[in-house]
Design a protein around this nucleic acid. Sequence first.
DNA 1: GCTCAAAAGTGCAGCC
DNA 2: GGCTGCACTTTTGAGC
Lengths: 110, 110, 110, 110
Amino acid sequence: MLTAKSKLEGGAGNGRREKTEFPMSDVNGVAQDHLRSFVERIERLEEEKKTISDDIKDVYAEAKGNGFDTKVLRKVISLRKQDADERQEQEAILDLYLQALGMAPSMSEG
Amino acid sequence: MLTAKSKLEGGAGNGRREKTEFPMSDVNGVAQDHLRSFVERIERLEEEKKTISDDIKDVYAEAKGNGFDTKVLRKVISLRKQDADERQEQEAILDLYLQALGMAPSMSEG
Amino acid sequence: MLTAKSKLEGGAGNGRREKTEFPMSDVNGVAQDHLRSFVERIERLEEEKKTISDDIKDVYAEAKGNGFDTKVLRKVISLRKQDADERQEQEAILDLYLQALGMAPSMSEG
Amino acid sequence: MLTAKSKLEGGAGNGRREKTEFPMSDVNGVAQDHLRSFVERIERLEEEKKTISDDIKDVYAEAKGNGFDTKVLRKVISLRKQDADERQEQEAILDLYLQALGMAPSMSEG
DNA sequence: GCTCAAAAGTGCAGCC
DNA sequence: GGCTGCACTTTTGAGC
């Protein structure tokens, strides 16, 4: 059974087939452009993400500089996040039980 | 209603001491405001960060929807990142050499 | 996949090249035996672990066969685990605050 | 104050009802016992599983303490596992062929 | 530098 | 049988 090899969308010369078996629905050049576009978008976002992460670190550093214990601060953040998550979880549980009881919860019907 | 949060300030407010052993350099109330400010800033940033992360996932999903193998795509991103990191590393080494030679690299303007 | 540059050979032993560049501080044969021993122990444990995992799956399957909704069942397990974790967490928080207050919790006084 | 745990049984009538809408084919009390039994079995197994996992971590730690690079060690384990899986796969294919030829492979005793 | 915890990535099981 | 969501593993980053 075949598996791994097909994934590389490898630029094998498929130019001459009526229909390509490759995972992209287009000619190679176009697919490449498409790929490049995705790569750029992702890299751009990753960059932004890193900026944010660095900002967060800066805030912790600033807090520390103001005499706060970062470990405690992190715990505070973590706890508040947990609370939020738990709230969501509660709704999920409710939905689950409603489903189990045959009473569909949401499914925004209508 | 406060729940877990209340524990956070539980330690505080246990009377005035000539000198506080608390890690904050201010009166409790003020420190609390300060703390709150830090917490809010961090949470805001964490939220933004999550938005970006979700965006990234969306892009991967879109790429997948366009026939790209996300695993390969991730590999591409990863490799390019490594390359970039190595490039930076090279520049850092160059800077070190320049410094060692007394030629400050100053700021690397494009 | 690992590329050649990875740290496979990296690590200890830098500097001495008369004998070996390998990361182990012993003669090859002995180190190999040692390595083999670790590999075997790990593989044995992994095997046991898999057995347990399969057992768990079996129990879920059996529960399902008895009319239980496995999704709900999993949720029940998950919730109970969360409760246990939270209990631990509470102790951790307490310790943290005690530390922050300069009251080391470390001593286990009765 | 309700704790999270209480929600679990919240849905079920803590008393005895003559009739149930629940997906279990038995009276509530009995189903509850049954459920409890499953929960306990699973939790017991999960516990064992965690013990094994911790043991594995310990072995890796010990290996590290003996100068082995855990990353490499993990790679070794992983590769060997792959090999084993592939071997199994080969046998499975062989079995298929044997079956196709009307020669049941029966049980593969080690 | 090592250890530990959070985040990401991968694989798997259940569902449509 | 493809897909979505979940659990496990791995990796990265922070703290001591």
